[in-house]
Nucleic acid binder design. Structure first.
Lengths: 229, 229
DNA sequence: CAGTTACGCTACGACCTGTAGCGAAAGGCT
DNA sequence: AGCCTTTCGCTACAGGTCGTAGCGTAACTG
């Protein structure tokens, strides 16, 4: 029934002519190029097909509509996000925030991200697709960073390991939300200065919570830490 | 030259038939109704005109396109946001966050807000329109709330009054960003529990910054304050 | 009253969507 | 090889939207 859903690898070893992998990459690349030049609203399926050197029908065989195509085209850009261990929670946060901000400054993501999220408010499958290919990819960074900080003793361990207390979700929404809002709504630069102030605010909040949970523990200072040259 | 720009009151006392005020309100109301039923992407100018009992050309005489129309239609909803003095910074924040979240849950704003912001990344006039009629209206709440907290002694006064140090902007992006991200991207409920945890985090961050600026000052506790029954 | 502007209506070209149908190409299976 | 299956490019198409032009009429100013 529902034959076309995505460019995700179809079952291999099935009869018939296989889908062209070159076409997939060409289409996604053309989609990003079209986003840069035209933006979300003026991007059309026909234009993408022409750019990719592919028939329009080929696009519709793989993606149901513009929304899903753009999600896939933009999702790969989020693979660049990494979380190298910089030795302190502060450095880790500042680094990942700057990385994320740089990603949001790119014209492809800038115009596409909010648009697909807006569409997803009335399209459950699209929301799920965004979650799986973009949101979860970011959230993983929060999980890693928090765990590292716990191992360093910068943050208290979960009271009930395994239980879902929503702390990760809260931190994630605060970080991603603040950066997105600053970059796309306020439309002001996410520069070193802002990132340091934001990180200090966040660390202060996490430190206060930690101090309350375990008074006397080594606190987190909101000011410039000893790890800043 | 550019004759049509908005439904905002044109110069009075000029010759000719004046614009119908009923038409304005009918159009904006029809736009919100269409947003509820159809969502952003399936909303059409022709449909709005029909609902409003108005000719399509009348819409184009007042708004250049769908984006600007929707911004004006949604902007008035943000007038509901208020900041009653609840006696403490914590209570003020929790109240305004819940209010804002309730606004974002409405189907009109849910589908429209992200969409117009997405469009604004490639449309400077639209961005300015959004800023003037929506963003600034929210930011004012932050300015009020912070000033009140300073008068109560909950937050330190600006080091250099009158100077722009960006603290208001930072707080604004953190609050608005986190709530929007939670509600529209993570698509999870902004309920009492989440709001309390978020507020505690924010107060902790603000308190840590205050403690650093003026050690020994009356700190802000991240835990449940004495003002919570 | 004349002058000016807004209104409703119709019609229109340009564009985009998403699908159907065709013959040809590219694989697996026996 | 031959058969089957699936994909591909191409063309054509109905349906819908956009944004504008042109017309006669309505409403208000001086």
């Amino acid at each position: 029934m529902c034959s076309r859903t995505s460019p995700r690898p179809r079952a291999t070893g099935r009869p018939g002519r296989p889908r062209s992998a070159e076409a997939d990459t060409a289409i996604l690349e053309a989609t990003r190029a079209a986003l840069v030049e035209l933006g979300w609203s003026k991007l059309t399926m026909g234009d993408v097909a022409t750019r990719a050197g592919v028939a329009k029908t080929t696009l519709y065989r793989r993606w149901a509509n513009k929304n899903e195509l753009v999600v896939d085209a933009v999702a790969v850009l989020f693979d660049e996000l990494e979380l190298p261990d910089l030795g302190s929670l502060r450095a880790d946060i500042e680094h990942v925030v700057l990385q994320f901000a740089a990603l949001l400054q790119r014209p492809e993501t800038k115009t596409a991200l909010m648009a697909v999220v807006a569409e997803s408010t009335r399209d459950e499958p699209l929301r799920e697709r965004i979650r799986a290919s973009i949101v979860d990819r970011q959230k993983r960074l929060v999980l890693e960073g928090r765990q590292r900080a716990q191992e360093r003793g910068e943050l208290p361990a979960d009271r009930d390991p395994g239980a879902i207390d929503g702390t990760d979700d809260l931190i994630f929404d605060v970080i991603a939300g603040a950066v997105v809002h600053r970059a796309l709504v306020s439309a002001e630069p996410v520069d070193q200065t802002w990132v340091q102030r934001f990180t200090a605010l966040l660390l202060g909040g996490l430190g206060a919570a930690a101090a309350q949970a375990a008074p006397g523990a080594q606190g987190l200072s909101a000011g410039p830490g000893p790890d800043r040259p």
